[in-house]
Design a protein around this nucleic acid. Structure first.
Lengths: 139, 139
DNA sequence: CTTGACTCTGGACCTTGATCGAGGGTCTAG
DNA sequence: CTAGACCCTCGATCAAGGTCCAGAGTCAAG
């Protein structure tokens, strides 16, 4: 069911819930393939563009940069370079996500300790959150 | 301790480990109070500026935006009334970080399953990673 | 055919969080 | 006194990730 009815850029934008200019921007940035054009020059999209845009949006929501997303997309374009390469890149991506989670977890735990130690009232001098930020300054 | 022998902006920058321009930038943005000036116009800082800069840096490391930090600083200056609000802000931050970690973990686990299910060789059509990226795409 | 909605391109502009440069004054060691 | 290191302001630039605008062409309904 792929290339059925063509869509204008506006229709795509509406369906995915993204700005028209963002679509053109992604195209310039190499995140979306250059679409077919009508005789008039209008871009003509099919469902695969919708899928790809949604993929980008979800990845972005997960905190991937556009550059990382370009890389993720390259994974799927790697078809012809063999399953082995694809698996390797997926493993690299996995390691990168692990690192990101570890970093976030470190920050999270530090913050949680402070929140738990804070009574939520009284003098700012006794608030461990403020103290940690202002005074205690480990060095 | 708090003996106010004055510091130049460069000395402050060096001690806190931040760029001189960043200090002036924070001042413009209302994150640092306008310091005393010498007759020459040179900014003249004391230890409290060092503390405040470190506060900013730490808060930034915890993922607060500069705007949120400006807010925190205002609250911490509001002795006795600020603590409750500070704790609330910190809790909100914590919840946001937790949500992000949960999402990333979900994706991570999905990706790991794909990597484990991929034989690393053979037909691209059998590679679960490629299949997931191209087809499945969760709508 | 007309009208209004849509699309095209190219370039300007926006936000956040800085960083850098130009042109000029200041400070301090030798 | 002079050189070199610092500091001043103002404005530009950067990176990321868009968003908006002008001027011109296109499409679809009535």
């Amino acid at each position: 069911m792929n290339t059925a009815h063509p869509l204008t850029i506006g229709a795509v934008a509406k369906r995915v819930g993204v700005n028209i200019d963002t679509i053109r921007y992604y195209e310039r940035e190499g995140l979306l393939p250059e679409p077919e054009r009508r005789a008039s020059g209008y871009r003509s999209y099919d469902e695969s563009a919708i899928r790809q845009l949604r993929f980008i949006r979800r990845a972005k929501d997960l905190g991937f940069t556009l550059e990382e997303i370009r890389d993720l997309l390259a994974l799927s374009a790697d078809r012809h370079r063999g399953v082995k390469a694809v698996k390797q890149r997926a493993q690299q991506r996995l390691a990168a996500i692990d690192a990101r989670i570890a970093e976030l977890t470190r920050v999270r735990d530090g913050l949680e300790q402070l929140v738990e130690a804070c009574p939520g009232h009284g003098s700012p001098d006794r608030c461990p959150i403020l103290r940690a930020l202002v005074d205690e300054d480990g060095q």
